[in-house]
């Protein structure tokens, strides 16, 4: 465990909890893509099936349980508890256009053709693109609440920190996983445009709004 990996995990945790708190405190999930959140729940579910088969460390197990619990709680808030505030009209990205190709790719390009390994690969590929419905929604409405942008920044930062962690591990441990690295690069690249807007607008005290 190096510092980039740890800060990456913490950034991920901050993002997830920030979103959950925002929805809970405002009693509203306006501006949040339910489709992205369902896909994140699917990502955690398919990746952490080894929670029952492969014990790594208390840290590892606890974090997995927190990520899973929070992501299911978020989905519950959007589609059940605060359903009335869900902006379904603007959440129009076709999720099947991501899930089906990603599923096909996980079958074709994986380390080992076993159910757990294919599901792990699927989760890595799906995570890399799962934020697209959320980014699409912001493009469509032309704006995002500041707290939502903090969430997105922490979520994007997490994978960027993992990329540095992978460079570190390659040099110091001779460890690398090409599937995770390529997907992690794709995932981070998708956030670049948002990072630019976040730094130039939100950090200067302005609301994130796109030109009409």
């Amino acid at each position: 465990m190096n510092v980039f990996r740890l800060t990456g995990d913490l950034s991920h945790l901050v993002a997830i909890i920030l979103l959950l708190l925002k929805i809970w405190k405002t009693r509203s999930c306006a501006g949040i893509s339910g489709k992205s959140q369902v896909m994140f729940a699917l990502v955690f579910t398919t990746r952490y099936l080894d929670l029952f088969t492969n014990f790594i460390s208390p840290y590892n197990s606890v974090m997995k349980v927190i990520y899973l619990g929070c992501s299911y709680a978020t989905v519950y808030m959007i589609y059940m508890k605060f359903k009335a505030s869900y902006d379904g009209n603007h959440d129009t990205f076709r999720a099947e256009f991501l899930i089906i190709p990603v599923g096909g790719l996980a079958f074709l390009v994986n380390h080992e053709f076993t159910p757990l390994e294919i599901l792990w690969t699927f989760s890595i590929y799906l995570e890399s693109v799962a934020i697209l419905p959320q980014l699409f929604m912001i493009t469509k409405t032309g704006e995002a609440e500041t707290i939502t942008t903090h969430y997105l920044f922490a979520l994007g930062l997490y994978r960027a920190l993992y990329l540095i962690n992978w460079i570190w591990r390659y040099y110091f441990e001779g460890f690398f996983d090409l599937i995770a690295i390529v997907a992690g690069c794709v995932q981070t690249i998708l956030y670049c445009d948002f990072f630019y807007l976040y730094i130039t607008k939100v950090l200067h005290g302005k609301k994130l709004s796109l030109p009409a």
């Binding site: 590892n60 974090m63 996983d177 995770a180």
Partner: peptide, 10 residues
Amino acid sequence: CATKQKKDEL
């Protein structure tokens, strides 16, 4: 082939 990942990452 990539090193088989010991899945200690989250």
